[in-house]
C-alpha cells in the first residue's frame, strides 16, 4: 500500500472557491502543511485540481506529526553516557 505525501507549497489565497475548497478537503490549511493519503483515483483527481500549488511524492508509509517533527530536528552533536541523577547514586 503506497501513499501520496502532499505538501502545500503555494497558498490558495485569491484563487477560485473551488480550488480553495479542494485544499480544505485535503486538510491543507497553511503553507508547508504535509498530509498523507492512500493512492487512489479520487485523491489523484483532487491533487490534479491543485497541481500548481503542491509538491507530491509517493511514499510507502505515512508519517505521524511527531515523526515529521523528529525528522526535521538536527543532530544535537552529543550523546548521553549517564544521567546526572544516576551518577550521584553512589554518594547517597
Amino acid at each position: 500500500m503506497s501513499y501520496f505525501r502532499i505538501t502545500l507549497m503555494r497558498s490558495g489565497i485569491g484563487l477560485p472557491q473551488k480550488t480553495q475548497g479542494v485544499l480544505k478537503a485535503l486538510g491543507l490549511r497553511k503553507r508547508m502543511t504535509t498530509v498523507y493519503y492512500p493512492v487512489s483515483q479520487s485523491v489523484a483527481g483532487q491533487i490534479l485540481r491543485i497541481k500548481e500549488l503542491v509538491d507530491v511524492k509517493e511514499v510507502s508509509a505515512p508519517m505521524t506529526k511527531e515523526q515529521m517533527r523528529a525528522s526535521r530536528r538536527p543532530d544535537p552533536g552529543y550523546y548521553i553516557e549517564q544521567k546526572a541523577g544516576e551518577a550521584m547514586w553512589g554518594y547517597k
Binding site: 501520496f4 489523484a44 503542491v54 507530491v56 509517493e58
Partner: peptide
C-alpha cells in the same frame, strides 16, 4: 513532475 508522480503511483 506532479502529474508524472500521480500517473506512476496509479
Amino acid at each position: 513532475t506532479v502529474v508524472a508522480t500521480i500517473d506512476n503511483a496509479l
